[in-house]
Structures are given as C-alpha cells and as structure tokens.
Simulated scan of single mutants.
Amino acid sequence: MSYLICSSHTWRMVSTPTVRRRRVGAELRRIREAAGMTLEDAAKVLECSISKISRMETGHVKARVRDIRELLDAYGLADEQRRNALLNLARNADQQDWWIDFSDVLSSLAQHYLSLESDAAWFCCFQPLVVPGLLQTEDYARAVISAGQIEETPEKVEKRVGIRMARQEILFRPNPVRLWVVLDEAVLRREVGGREVMRGQLKRLADAAVMPNITLQVLPYEVGAHAGIDGPFVLIGFPEREDPDVVFLENMTSSLYLENNEAVYRYKLAFDHIRAEALSPRRSEELIRKLAKEFV
C-alpha cells in the first residue's frame, strides 16, 4: 500500500492510494481473473506496460474511465449495473473532500489519513500519550496542537483545531464509525492546557464512553509492562471486506501505514492483549469521572 519515507530534510511519498482507488483496482482485478486473463493480456488491450495494469489494480495510479471501459469490454463483462457502478466509483475516486481547503496546513500524508478516516467503518486505538483527536475537546486540541506545532502561527493553529473538530463528525453521522479506544492512565492524569481544560476533557471522555458506537477503556498504572509498550497505534477497518485493514503509526517527523497481513495481525493481537488487561468500560468511565472532579 503505502509508506512515507523520511530523512532529516526530505519527504517522499511512496504511493498513497485512496480507499476509492483501491476499491476500483480490486474490482478490476476480480473481473480480469474471472475472465481468465493475465496482467499481460490486459496490458495488450491498453497497449501499455504490465506495470501500469498492476498499479491500477493496486490503486497506486488512477484508472481512467476510458481505460476501464476498454478493459471491461475485453473481459466480456456484460452486467450493466456492475459496469456503471465501477465507472461511477472511478469518476469519484479523486473527488475533492472538505479538507482540500486546508492544504496549507495539511501535508499530503495527512490528507490521505483523512481520506481513510472518512471511509472507515471502525477504529481500534491505543494511546499512551494524549486523548485521540476524535475525542478531544476544542480547548484540549488547541493545547496539544500548540505544544506540538511550535513553529506554527496562531492562525494555522486555529485552522488545525477546526480540522480536528470537523473530523469528529464521523462519530455522529447516520451510520457512525465504531471506535474502541484504550487510554493509558497517564493520559488522564497529565495536565494539558490547565486544570479547567482537563476537567472539560475528562467530562467529554466520560460522556463519549456511554455512546453506543464508542468503547472506552483505561489501562491502569498497576498493569506495568504491556503489549503496547512500544507506543501508540491505530487499526482502521473499512465497510467492504475487500479493503484490507490498515495500521497507522505516527511520530514527530514521519508516519507509516501498514497493511501487510502479518503486521496487521500482530497489532490486532497486541490490541487484544491491551484491552484484556485494561479496566472494564464501566470501571473506566467511573475512574474518568472521578479524576474529572480532581481537576478543580
């Protein structure tokens, strides 16, 4: 899928297909294979390289509508409904989303993450440092962003805060994303933005904990070493079974996406161990409400 290669001064994106491109490519591959044709056969149809067909099928390059029509004809696909659905998906594969207006503060990698996030069906998140962005209050987000973006102007900080708040819409839409979060106890006790900000943030977490699409747990100090000791991570799943689950890792200077089956399995296993050692959702909510009262 996709990786960000980073040196001290150079950022290079090595393929970051959107979910829609990946879906178009996967469908093209299924239709080609059902027709008994090889990559080489498809390349002859478009008079192009095998590499181009391969990259179309993995979503690393956009498949042009004209090319798709030619391939579907060659594959003998007569199902008009299926043809039209695929062509419409291809037309919308690169549609501009709301965050395009914030390209001055969002890297291409960040925009790619927002694309994955908006198309996701569920998230499993372990966070030992700060409250995840989808559950942050505006004041808490402002404090976190200001601390992490020390060279940003106040105007750009406010833009980033606005983006973070807009992202949370996926929790409240008619078909909301499902979110399972495990927070290290340190997240609840680290004072970010002042005591009033923390009190408001903890109340927000407690309220989120009772939402039907959110499961929130706290990993207490007493657990000691645990399966997430190496740092935060996010598992992302999508509505279509054909779209592989993704692991998202991030640090100060780079980010990484993994969709290799073995890597994803290892992180799923780690998350299972972490949530098994964490407090139950009910006890976690009680602890959060108790700590909120201490920030007075």
Results as ranks from 00 to 15, higher is better:
3 Y>S: 14
15 S>G: 13
19 V>P: 00
28 L>Q: 06
33 E>I: 09
33 E>D: 13
33 E>Q: 14
36 G>P: 03
39 L>Q: 15
45 V>M: 09
52 K>F: 07
53 I>A: 06
58 T>D: 13
69 R>N: 10
72 L>Q: 08
73 D>N: 14
73 D>M: 06
82 R>T: 11
82 R>D: 09
86 L>S: 04
93 A>C: 07
95 Q>H: 12
98 W>S: 02
102 F>N: 04
103 S>A: 14
103 S>P: 00
103 S>F: 05
109 L>K: 08
110 A>N: 04
117 E>D: 13
120 A>D: 00
126 F>E: 00
128 P>Q: 09
131 V>N: 03
142 R>L: 08
152 E>W: 09
153 T>S: 15
154 P>T: 12
155 E>G: 04
166 A>Y: 00
170 I>R: 04
171 L>G: 01
174 P>E: 13
175 N>R: 12
177 V>I: 14
179 L>R: 01
179 L>P: 01
181 V>W: 00
189 R>I: 05
190 R>W: 07
191 E>M: 12
200 G>T: 04
206 A>K: 02
206 A>G: 15
209 A>N: 05
217 Q>F: 07
221 Y>I: 05
224 G>R: 10
224 G>A: 10
225 A>E: 13
235 L>Q: 01
241 R>K: 12
245 D>L: 03
245 D>P: 10
247 V>I: 11
252 M>Q: 12
257 Y>I: 02
260 N>E: 14
270 A>C: 05
274 I>G: 00
274 I>V: 11
276 A>W: 03
278 A>I: 05
279 L>H: 06
291 L>C: 02
294 E>T: 11
295 F>P: 03
